[in-house]
């Protein structure tokens, strides 16, 4: 039974981020890949949408510059023929401050011929910003409008 593309991609991504070894991940990304990791790009320039392999590799290099993955736990995972969805709990270290950051991430990946052609990632970005700031953001409760 052939290994699902997600597992190869996941191993290569973690090797790229933690070991700064980009050789495997380069081979697993399609030239025309679409990538979207939404969030406040003014605070985190590596967030946002990207098109094409070079742009995505640049994002992965920026992730490697900023974070170390200490641990990850897949809480849900669904594998389709050429697609995958997972909910993953990441424990990261922000390299500039040495702060721990804990994130729950939803990932939706699509592959063609073993290469990534689409990746959409959603994060509880409000929580991410509060962790990066190291304090809560105080806003009024939206009891009637939210």
């Amino acid at each position: 039974m052939t290994e699902h593309s997600l597992w190869r991609f996941s191993r290569a991504l973690h090797r790229a981020i933690n070991d700064r070894d980009f050789r495997d991940i380069e081979a697993l990304i399609d030239e025309d890949v679409e990538w979207a990791l939404y969030g406040p790009i003014d605070m985190f320039p590596f967030l946002g949408a990207r098109q094409g392999k070079d742009a995505v590799l640049d994002v992965i290099r920026q992730l490697a510059d900023n974070f170390q993955v200490r641990r990850f736990d897949r809480e849900s995972i669904m594998l389709g023929v050429d697609s995958a969805a997972s909910m993953v709990r990441y424990s990261l270290t922000a390299l500039d401050s040495n702060k721990p950051i804990s994130l729950r991430v939803a990932q939706f990946a699509q592959f063609r011929a073993g290469k990534l052609i689409s990746m959409r990632v959603l994060i509880d970005t409000f929580d991410l910003v509060e962790q990066a700031l190291g304090r809560a953001i105080h806003l009024p409760k939206m009891t009637s409008v939210g």
Binding site: Y38, R104, D124, T125, F126, L139
Partner: peptide, 8 residues
């Protein structure tokens, strides 16, 4: 999971 910063 929602892009909650944008939603807020």
């Amino acid at each position: 999971i929602i892009d909650s910063y944008d939603l807020v």
